[in-house]
Structure formats: structure tokens, C-alpha cells
Computed example of a mutant assay.
Amino acid sequence: MNEQQNSTTEQMSPVTVIGLGPMGQAMTRTLLTAGHKVTVWNRTAGRAGAVVADGATLAATAREAVEASDLVILSLTDYQAMYDVLDGVGASLAGRTLVNLSSDTPDRTREAATWAAGHNAAFLTGGVMVPAPMIGTEAAFVYYSGRNEVAETHMATLALLGQPRYLGGDPGLAQMMYQAQLTVFLTTLSALMHATAMLGAAGMSAREALPELLSSAESIGDILRAGEENPGAGLDADKHPGDLSTVTMMGATADHIVETSTSLGLDTALPLAVQAHYQQAIKSGHGGDNWTRIIDSIRGPR
């Protein structure tokens, strides 16, 4: 069989999707549109109605769903939900590939890979980096990690959900990247809400404030990429030249934000956390270094 035939066979192979929240439903519809036969199962069977109407097959049990396909995609609340759903399925997992796109910790994903291997099943960890409505679009991308040969076997199918970005053999890597990305995302959202509350206390509506604040958030990437060198190179080399901005300068700004937030009666948890990073760097004698020096206290003792 040539490469094109292999790709076609993989793309048209049956797929099982377990978990039919908004993400699971979006994945199911994307796979159906591409021509796959899709079997679905959900603990609350009523959620399957819409995708069944679109052409999916509803399995009566989790075991029946697993046995319907060699490729089983899980879109659940967390990894404990996988164990709950697949408890008792055991022998039916042998020879199949589980692709868990649920959120949890890197350590739990590594434990899950070991658990799957104990049932003679292959395992891939995935981190979906877009909301459900964007699944299957050009903007969608998904991080994967686990054994390379397993990833390659099913990548044509998984690519339908979003651009695959394979990180390596450690099952925890994709989840670590997912958590890292969401650290940026969630912290930015909290910062936007805190800043909106600050401006609201001064009489500015959120409708007026957010466009201005978003322009600042969007410029961060441009600022970090402004130099010719990848800013990560300096971090890797432990070089923090303070020629443009220093820990002391940024720390003073952090102090002012805490003072302003306190005077307005706002919650100060976020600005205090930021202030602490700069205070620790100054305490350690790095006030003249670039603001990137705050990574030392975040990393902790090494």
C-alpha cells in the first residue's frame, strides 16, 4: 500500500469519541464531515442527540464504544473521569489507541500512559488550544506527546481537529504546554478584569476600557520580539541586561499598582503577587537587571 493509500485508509477509519460536552460534540461533527464513521458515548446519554442526528452512532455502553474503533478520543473533565468511564472495560482496550484530550496535570498524564500500557493500549496526551467553535478550522491547533510511532499512525485523523504540534515522547509534555499556555491566558484575563475594575472606579465604562486594554495585551508579543534575538535565549543563558528596563523600575510600577488598587478598595491578590516577584529580585541584589530576572524566584531554589 502506498503512502497516499495509507493516508486515505487512516482518514476514513472509524473513530470513537467519549465525552460529549461542547468540545466532544465539535470533534464529532468535524470527524463526521471528513467522512469518518464516528461512535459516541457519554455518561449523560441525552447529550448525544444532536451529533446522532448529524450521523454519529450512539453506543449503549462505554465498552461498546471502545470496541467500535481502534482510535478512541476522550474529551472529559479530567483524567479521573477516564478511569471512571473505562473502569471494567479493561480487556477491550488491548491493541487500541487512547488519545486523551482532557485537562489535568502532567504527572497524571504520565500515570495514565502507564495505566494504558498495562492494558496493552497505546496512549497519547493532547492539549487543545482553541475553544469548541474553532475545532476543525485553520486557527485550531493541538499539542500532542507520547510515543512517536503512535502519534504518526493517527496524525492524519487528528489533524482534522486542528494542526498537530508534536512535542516528544514524554506523555506529560503536551499537558505541561497546555498548562503553560493557560497560565498566560488565565493570568491575562484576570489582569484585564483587574484593569477594567480600576478604570471603572474612575468612571470609565468597560465598553470604553477594554479596547484600550486589549491593545496593550496584544502589543506584548511585539515588544518581546522587538530585538533581533529570541528573548528566550537570554533566559536560557541566564543573561538579563538592564539596558532598557530594570527590575527596580518595573518594581516601582508594581508598587504603584498595589497602592492604587488598595486606595480603590479592589482585591489586591493579583498585584501583590506581581509585586512580590520584583521585591524578591531586588532583595536578591538584581535591581539593575532586566525584568526577566524575576524568573529566578518563580523557578524556586535550584
Results as ranks from 00 to 15, higher is better:
residue 196 T to R: 01
residue 191 A to I: 10
residue 176 M to C: 10
residue 88 G to E: 09
residue 123 F to T: 08
residue 199 L to N: 13
residue 198 M to R: 03
residue 4 Q to R: 13
residue 236 D to K: 15
residue 227 G to M: 08
residue 149 E to L: 13
residue 124 L to H: 01
residue 198 M to P: 06
residue 21 G to L: 05
residue 254 A to L: 01
residue 60 A to M: 14
residue 133 P to A: 04
residue 154 H to N: 14
residue 289 D to A: 14
residue 138 E to R: 00
residue 166 Y to K: 02
residue 91 A to H: 06
residue 48 A to H: 07
residue 210 L to P: 05
residue 139 A to N: 11
residue 148 N to W: 04
residue 27 M to T: 03
residue 46 G to T: 14
residue 98 L to A: 01
residue 104 D to G: 06
residue 295 I to L: 11
residue 231 P to W: 04
residue 271 P to H: 09
residue 27 M to R: 03
residue 131 P to E: 01
residue 1 M to F: 10
residue 289 D to V: 11
residue 105 T to N: 04
residue 16 T to Q: 05
residue 87 D to R: 08
residue 148 N to Y: 06
residue 149 E to R: 13
residue 189 L to K: 07
residue 88 G to V: 03
residue 42 N to I: 07
residue 110 R to E: 02
residue 260 T to D: 14
residue 254 A to C: 13
residue 235 L to N: 10
residue 106 P to M: 03
residue 26 A to M: 09
residue 166 Y to D: 01
residue 119 H to P: 06
residue 128 V to I: 13
residue 224 L to D: 11
residue 286 H to S: 07
residue 292 T to Q: 04
residue 87 D to Y: 04
residue 125 T to E: 09
residue 200 G to K: 02
residue 30 T to D: 10
residue 258 V to F: 08
residue 159 A to D: 08
residue 297 S to Y: 11
